[in-house]
Design a protein around this nucleic acid. Sequence first.
DNA 1: GCTATGATGTAAACGGTGTCTACATTGTAG
DNA 2: CTACAATGTAGACACCGTTTACATCATAGC
Lengths: 215, 215
Amino acid sequence: MSNLRSGGTERSYHHGHLRHALVDSAVSAARSGGPEAVVLRAATRKAGVSAGAAYRHFADRDDLLRAVARRCLDHMGDLIERRLDEAEPLPGSDGAWRRLHVAGRAYVEFAINEPGWFHTAFAIPVEAQPRREGGNRGLFQILVDVLDQLVTTGAITPEARLRAEYVAWSSVHGIATLVTGGSLRDLPPAERDASIDRVVRSVTFQVDNVGNLPI
Amino acid sequence: MSNLRSGGTERSYHHGHLRHALVDSAVSAARSGGPEAVVLRAATRKAGVSAGAAYRHFADRDDLLRAVARRCLDHMGDLIERRLDEAEPLPGSDGAWRRLHVAGRAYVEFAINEPGWFHTAFAIPVEAQPRREGGNRGLFQILVDVLDQLVTTGAITPEARLRAEYVAWSSVHGIATLVTGGSLRDLPPAERDASIDRVVRSVTFQVDNVGNLPI
DNA sequence: GCTATGATGTAAACGGTGTCTACATTGTAG
DNA sequence: CTACAATGTAGACACCGTTTACATCATAGC
């Protein structure tokens, strides 16, 4: 199986799809080992190619890591879109609230089921890419759309909409990182799930209430 | 300055405070370079000692990183305690809310002013250590105490207190990570600060409101 | 069809890293 | 004073990212 293309045909001097093969291999490694597991030489080895060959397709290791992170973000977006599609379509503001809730739960669900990919997705900054053919909208855009629906359905005021992305995202991203490898990684599963539920539910109040503190 | 103790005295075969020296050096490196900058060999070099010497004091590199992370957490706790001490002491529930707010702001303040230390603090899981002589209470305990005061002052019900740690911590930790090196790292400072403010303020509503969603 | 050229892969090296092993030196308990 | 445990050294090993000079290939233009 070494030195063969994934198809199984004997390969000649040129690989043909090396860039893709390297990313595939690194994505697979990141799934179980996180960002630290994406290592250039290992990827080239699995592709049956010399180490230097990688530099025909990536400027450096970070460049590969960025490509891997993009794929992880894609997987994440895919799951969230899928969960949104599965959600029962409630009319009006109820539906909008429901979608915010579903998206938040899916975000944490991905982090828990694919911690390696989740950590890799945020291990390196990656500029927003234009929407790919058949790809999802991207994490941030999904969130923006869901929040916009809260306004159009009259669930919240335009004032509450202001910077609501950051509020919602912070909560969900925070609990996801703390629970997967962070300081809360050893929480018993039941307590962990209850905490996630509490946090995701609380996003509602966070987004809905805007204004000055009483003090 | 090489091969000399920090005091300046010529050192003999034994260093005397090597463990401390290595941690100091690594903490200093982490301040500007984050967790990736804590490298064993560099630390031993700066201590004027051979690479292997480190293994008399640390099981491996992660063991050193853990020690560094603890110091970073200490620094974080110190700042938060300081900010809490500086806060004007309001009576009753107003004071309790104020303290929650101040602690949250201090948390993000540390992350922004010391991103290297902040990321190092959470780069590796570190078990809660018993309170050190003269040290702070530890991040989590500070939060617990602040939230308990919300109950004792009657600001929130015991029901709302349940798992409030996770709610408050998630928001604040989330915005801190997103804004320092995360996906929101390029936010213009004004927008960034406004977002932080919005998030920290929203913690109030998050903690205060508990119950089922309308849907 | 032949060939110049750019794209892609190779081989070998470099410096850096974490880690181990066998050995040297030193403080200290008995 | 001496045996021993603690601590530091020297040198090796495998691995990593990265660079350089060179080999092979696809193909555009004659």
